[in-house]
C-alpha cells in the first residue's frame, strides 16, 4: 500500500529522526553537492540531479581507522573502531541504492568487512525516485530504474504537494511515522534514461583482452582517480599503519586501480605498467570479473564518471565501441 506524506509531514518526520539518529542527506556545498550528516532539515538539498560524490562514503569512508593498538604497562590492547549510532541515509537515488547493494556483495561476503557490516546494519536507506534523468544517466541498462524500490527501505516519489511513500522493507515500515494516509492517486511514471548495449558486451569481453583498443583508449587517460572515487561501486582501498610514540593505528583510505602504485608488488614487479593496461582493468573489473563473481555488472549507470572525467572517457562509449570492435573482428 502506498502512503502519502505532505511536505510538512516529511519535514516533521525528518525532524523527529534527527532527535534519535544521524541523518545523512544531500547538502549543497561551495562547489559540489555531497551526502553528509545534517543537523537540521533546512540543510537538505531536495532538488539535485546527482551528487558529486556517491553516498558510498558513509559506508566505506574515504579514510577511517580500522583499529588502534594501545600499550600500557607491558600490556597490548587492540581497540576496535565502534559504530555507535543508528543512521538514516536520506534522499539517495535508486542508482546509488543499487551501488550500495553491489558493494554489499564483496564486503558482506563471509567473513565480511566488520565496519562496513555494522554501518550497513545500523543505517536505513530512504530513497528518492528521480523526477528527471540526465543525458549521462543509463540506470535501466544496468538493472535499475529511476523509480526502482528494490534496494532501499523506503522509497519516496515526489508528487504535487508531497510524496508518495512506499515502505519496502520491515526496517522501513518501523521507521515511518504514524498517521500517514493511504495514497490513492496515480504514481507518476518514471522518466526514461538512454539505453546502452551492455548484455551484448559482457559476453564478448574475454575475447577483447588483448585488443589494441585499450592502449588507444589509454592514450588520453590521465590516470587520476576521479572515476573510481565518484563511482558508487568502486570499493578498493589501501591500508597503512600509523605509528606514533607507542600508539599504532591501522588506517584505510580509498585507492584505485588507476594509481601507479596499485598493482606494484614487493620486489618491484608491476603486472600493469601501461596506461592501457590500467584502464582496461577498470572496465574488466566492472564488466567481466565482478559479473563472473557476483552475477551483476559493477556499474549502476549513474553517469558520474562520464560527467567527471577530465578527458571524457565515457563508459557508455566504451561499451558501444567494444561491440563495434567485436563486430569488426568477427566480420573479418
Amino acid at each position: 500500500m502506498n502512503l502519502f506524506a505532505s511536505k510538512n509531514d516529511l519535514i516533521r518526520w525528518l525532524d523527529s529522526l534527527l532527535q534519535e539518529r544521524i541523518v545523512i542527506a544531500p547538502v549543497r556545498g561551495q562547489a559540489q553537492i555531497v551526502f553528509q550528516p545534517i543537523s537540521k532539515v533546512e540543510e537538505i538539498a531536495f532538488d539535485f540531479d546527482n551528487t558529486t560524490l556517491s553516498p558510498k562514503g558513509w559506508f566505506l569512508p574515504p579514510t577511517e581507522t580500522l583499529f588502534s593498538v594501545q600499550r600500557d604497562d607491558g600490556q597490548v590492547e587492540l581497540v576496535p573502531t565502534l559504530v555507535e549510532q543508528d543512521a538514516v541515509l536520506f534522499g539517495l537515488h535508486p542508482c546509488d541504492a543499487k551501488g550500495i547493494a553491489l558493494m554489499d556483495k564483496p564486503l558482506l561476503q563471509e567473513p565480511g568487512d566488520a565496519l562496513y557490516r555494522e554501518r550497513r546494519t545500523r543505517t536505513a536507506l530512504v530513497g528518492l525516485a528521480c523526477r528527471q534523468v540526465q543525458p549521462e544517466c543509463f540506470c535501466t541498462s544496468m538493472g535499475s530504474a529511476p523509480d526502482d524500490p528494490s534496494n532501499v527501505d523506503i522509497l519516496l516519489t515526489e508528487v504535487e504537494d508531497g510524496y508518495v511513500v512506499q515502505a519496502v522493507t520491515e526496517k522501513g515500515k518501523a521507521l515511518l511515522p504514524q498517521g500517514l494516509v493511504e495514497y490513492k492517486g496515480k504514481v507518476p511514471s518514471p522518466p526514461k534514461p538512454q539505453a546502452v548495449p551492455i548484455k551484448e558486451v559482457i559476453s564478448v569481453m574475454r575475447e577483447l583482452f588483448n585488443d589494441p583498443y585499450w592502449e588507444q583508449l589509454g592514450d588520453r587517460c590521465l590516470h587520476c582517480n576521479i572515476c573510481a572515487y565518484v563511482c558508487p561501486t568502486c570499493y578498493c582501498f589501501d591500508m597503512r599503519d600509523y605509528t606514533d610514540k607507542g600508539k599504532v593505528e591501522r588506517v584505510r583510505s580509498w585507492e584505485s586501480c588507476q594509481s601507479r602504485g596499485f598493482s606494484l608488488t614487493a620486489g618491484g614487479y608491476d603486472p600493469r605498467t601501461t596506461k592501457g593496461e590500467r584502464l582496461r582493468q577498470r572496465f574488466y573489473h566492472k564488466l567481466l570479473y565482478f559479473p563472473e563473481q557476483f552475477q551483476d555488472v559493477a556499474c549502476v549507470g549513474c553517469g558520474r564518471c562520464v560527467r567527471a572525467c577530465p578527458v571524457n572517457i565515457d563508459i557508455r562509449e566504451v561499451i558501444s565501441d567494444l561491440q563495434q570492435v567485436m563486430e569488426a573482428k568477427s566480420g573479418s
Binding site: 556545498g29 561551495q30 562547489a31 559540489q32 560524490l53 574515504p62 590521465l222 590516470h223 587520476c224 582517480n225 576521479i226 572515487y229 583510505s253 580509498w254 594509481s259 601507479r260 577530465p310
Partner: peptide, 20 residues
C-alpha cells in the same frame, strides 16, 4: 578538507613528472 586525493591536479600538470 574537500580534497579527495584523486591526484587529477598532478596527473594533468605538465610540470609534474617525477618518476615516483
Amino acid at each position: 578538507g574537500r580534497c579527495i586525493r584523486c591526484y587529477a591536479c598532478r596527473q594533468v600538470c605538465p610540470g609534474c613528472y617525477c618518476p615516483v
